[in-house]
Design a protein around this nucleic acid. Structure first.
Length: 264
DNA sequence: AACTTGCGCAACCGCCAGTCG
DNA sequence: GCGACTGGCGGTTGCGCAAGT
């Protein structure tokens, strides 16, 4: 009998089996609640997170959301050729030990690396096992680089993205997809939801942090539509941003204070 | 324009190891 | 030593989107 079956038989509910536990994609509101809580209490003791925050998520889900998406310093998007080479090289040495591999790429999560391997690199490597030229190049790229083959534990780098960027990115995609569902014809109007500089350019939240941008005004019908289902989340986010601006929520503290030694 | 297919990625699931009482 | 519990990890799934037909 499996552990799960035996536990269930004994009557103890597993965390994600509990009634009322929400599943599926996280909303910006939930992200903000989670980030605010962790900013106050620090990561860890995940068991208490859902109870203390009121989030209808299991502790595991909270931890995963934080480590894979919200925590400071996560670099998203394209992997560089150097990163590719490093992953290929490490995978050949360590196997599918994604957590171990991720420790060499502190800006990437194990989940990201795993996904990238499964969707890109695996095929690439398999393809190139017939002719090894490309792999050799990539591995050499990793070997010839200045990257030490020791886990990096520096979290203070300026290359680290902030939670704010992660959340604003999520919000952009979330509002875009919600918009698409309700009114596909207006997709073109919905360029971004963040902050606009004085030239009217859309900026990331981090740009606003240097004080050059102003919050969006709702001027067009398409923007006004945001005042429907997404109004609440935008209001919450913007209030939070304003709080951050006056120091109630210390966003920069999340980026630096919670990572004294680079270990999460 | 409508439909299909493939891809990317966030999130979930199940298992395992460590810790605590 | 044992069972309960938590956190961590790797594998897998499912949804949304873009490209192709």
């Amino acid at each position: 009998m499996s552990q799960r079956a035996s536990l269930t038989a004994m009557g103890r509910s597993l965390c994600c089996d509990k009634v009322g536990i929400k599943k599926g994609p996280w909303t910006p509101e939930e992200d903000i609640v989670l980030v605010s809580y962790i900013q106050k209490h620090g990561p860890g003791n995940w068991r208490s997170v859902p109870t203390n925050t009121g989030l209808m998520r299991c502790s595991k889900s909270c931890r995963l959301r934080w480590t894979n998406y919200l925590r400071p310093g996560i670099k998203r998007g394209n992997f560089t050729p150097h990163e590719e080479g490093l992953i290929i090289h490490l995978q050949s040495m360590l196997g599918n030990k994604w957590a171990a591999i991720a420790s060499y790429l502190p800006q990437r999560t194990d989940n990201d690396i795993k996904n990238y391997w499964n969707t890109h690199l695996k095929k690439k490597v398999e393809k190139n096992q017939v002719g090894n030229a490309s792999i050799a190049y990539n591995i050499d790229g990793a070997r010839n680089s200045h990257v030490s083959m020791l886990p990096i534990s520096n979290c203070g780098s300026s290359t680290y993205a902030s939670n704010m960027e992660n959340i604003s990115g999520l919000l952009q995609r979330w509002t875009r997809s919600s918009q698409k569902k309700t009114d596909p014809a207006q997709n073109q109007d919905l360029k971004c939801h963040g902050f606009q500089d004085d030239q009217g350019n859309c900026d990331t939240v981090s740009d606003r942090e240097v004080g050059t941008s102003v919050p969006f005004e709702v001027e067009s019908p398409s923007e006004a539509r945001l005042c429907g289902a997404q109004h609440h989340s935008l209001t919450v986010l913007e209030n939070w941003l304003l709080d951050e601006a006056v120091g109630i929520v210390d966003v920069t503290g999340i980026s630096t204070g919670l990572c004294p030694d680079g270990v999460y």
